[in-house]
Amino acid sequence: MDSFSLKLLACVTMLIDHTGAIFFPEIMFFRIIGRVAFPIYAFLITEGYSRTKNIKRYMFRLFILAIISQIPYMLAFETKGLNVFFTLLSGIFIMIIIDKKVHYYKLKHDIKISKEVFDISIYIIKFVIILGILYILEKFQSDYAIYGVCIILCFKMFKENFKKLTLSMIGLNFLYTIPYLKYFMEPFGVNFRVFLQATCINSLFFIYHYNGSEGKKAQLLFYGFYPVHLLVLVFIRYILINGI
Rank of each mutant, 00 (worst) to 15 (best):
K126E: 10
K106P: 08
I33Y: 04
V234E: 10
I201L: 15
R51F: 14
S90G: 09
S5E: 12
S114V: 11
V117N: 13
H209C: 12
G91F: 03
A76K: 01
G171E: 00
L8E: 01
E26A: 10
I32N: 05
D2M: 00
I113Y: 07
L204C: 01
I120E: 13
A21I: 13
I207H: 00
I207C: 05
L153A: 02
T87P: 08
Y208A: 12
F162H: 01
I146Q: 05
I92F: 05
I68L: 13
M74N: 13
C150D: 02
S213T: 15
I68H: 12
K159Y: 09
F140T: 10
F195P: 06
T19M: 12
I94T: 05
G212V: 03
F23G: 05
L175Y: 08
F93A: 09
Y144W: 15
G132I: 04
A145R: 06
H209A: 14
F155Q: 02
L88M: 12
M95E: 14
L107S: 10
K217I: 13
I239K: 14
I120T: 09
P25Q: 07
S213M: 10
Y144E: 03
L62T: 09
A76Q: 07
M14I: 06
F63P: 10
S50V: 00
T166R: 04
F155S: 00
I178K: 03
L240I: 15
I94Q: 10
K56S: 11
I239L: 15
F86V: 00
F188D: 11
K53M: 03
F192Y: 15
C154E: 04
L137R: 08
I241D: 11
F118Q: 07
N83F: 08
C154W: 00
I125F: 15
T46M: 08
K156G: 00
L221S: 00
A76E: 15
K101E: 15
F43H: 07
E214N: 03
E47K: 13
V102Q: 08
F195H: 14
L65G: 11
K216G: 02
L175V: 14
A10C: 04
T177C: 15
I151F: 04
Q70T: 02
Y183V: 07
G148S: 00
K164A: 13
A198S: 14
K112A: 11
T79F: 02
I71E: 11
Y73Q: 05
V102P: 07
F188E: 12
K163G: 05
S3F: 09
V194K: 09
S5C: 07
T13E: 11
G91K: 08
V149L: 07
S142I: 02
K7L: 09
I67Y: 08
K159W: 01
N202S: 12
L8W: 04
Q70P: 06
L107R: 06
V234W: 14
R51N: 14
D17P: 13
M74A: 13
G91M: 00
M95R: 05
Q70N: 03
D119Y: 10
S142W: 03
L6A: 06
F77G: 03
I133V: 15
K112T: 06
V234L: 08
L82S: 00
